[in-house]
């Protein structure tokens, strides 16, 4: 997308606390194959918010994340981060955008042949941080995530939960204003998941805006934060402190399940 010579009125960076950190404005994403990733999605996420993005696989959660990383371009609509239109950021500046966004993935995405320390340090080396401050910051953040004893281990020597902690440490080490977590607990057992969510919540408490895509319903129900539910690329619910699904009685649950599985009302004797 060419950069317009005259800045659009909305592209001027608005000041003040009421600027949403993330803003989707009527965003549609159609993949090259023709499948629809997102359809006319609009949402605003304010500074310091903690938001769950829920929905079944293929509903567009990951598409949202990748659009925010500018890994994909929206087919239509605008996405802004802190009032800056992503469409106006030229390709060469994308790395600088990403330095202001921490990302945590389900598969951790650690560099396999670097130690825990080097993995976290890499995120600082990339932004040209002086060596001395790297030496100070990395042990600090690793202590925060509870890995101060595993500094010199390689990722394959750690448990899944520990690897996810390293990836959170890497995402947060330069204190980005926005943290994106794509299924951060997808590969972890419930007990470990709680630890990870606790950590993410702690990061949120420092003022970082956090967006968590998940289908871990137990976690969403326990945390009681804002929930945005997607289905087939559309937002179908946006609730200030919601559950994974709004309350339903066991009977309603059974009816929904039968409906989803395509079984008739008297389909099952039990």
């Amino acid at each position: 997308m060419p950069v317009p010579a005259r800045p659009l009125p909305r592209a001027q960076r608005p000041q003040g606390r009421n600027v949403p950190v993330v803003e989707f404005d009527d965003v549609t994403k159609v993949y090259d194959g023709g499948s629809v990733g997102l359809e006319r999605v609009s949402m605003r996420i304010g500074r310091g918010d903690f938001v769950f993005l829920v929905g079944p696989t293929g509903c567009g959660k990951s598409t949202c994340m990748r659009l925010l990383m500018k890994e994909l371009e929206p087919s239509q609509g605008r996405i802004s981060i802190a009032g800056r239109d992503l469409g106006e950021i030229p390709r060469k500046r994308v790395p600088y955008l990403r330095r202001n966004i921490g990302v945590v993935f389900q598969d951790y995405k650690l560099l396999p042949n670097r130690t825990v320390y080097a993995n976290v340090a890499y995120a600082l080396e990339v932004i040209g941080e002086p060596r001395q401050s790297i030496r100070r910051k990395v042990p600090d953040i690793l202590r925060l995530v509870g890995l101060s004893t595993k500094l010199h281990n390689y990722p394959d020597e750690l448990s899944g939960g520990e690897q996810q902690r390293v990836s959170i440490a890497r995402a947060f080490v330069n204190h980005p204003p926005l943290l994106l977590c794509d299924e951060p607990t997808g590969n972890l057992d419930p007990e470990t998941s709680i630890g990870i969510m606790q950590l993410i919540y702690r990061i949120n408490r420092t003022g970082t805006t956090v967006l968590v895509a998940t289908h871990d319903r137990e976690m969403v129900d326990k945390m009681r934060r804002r929930v945005i539910e997607l289905a087939e690329g559309r937002i179908i619910r946006d609730q200030i402190s919601g559950l994974y699904r709004p309350d339903e009685s066991t009977k309603e649950f059974a009816i929904r399940l039968r409906g989803e599985l395509g079984i008739g009302d008297e389909g099952h004797p039990n």
Binding site: R98, V126, R170
Partner: peptide, 16 residues
């Protein structure tokens, strides 16, 4: 190539 992918996600420039 996966390593390169991760480096990009962390915000490394191409020449870096």
């Amino acid at each position: 190539r996966r390593e390169v992918e991760v480096m990009k996600l962390v915000g490394a420039t191409n020449w870096f």
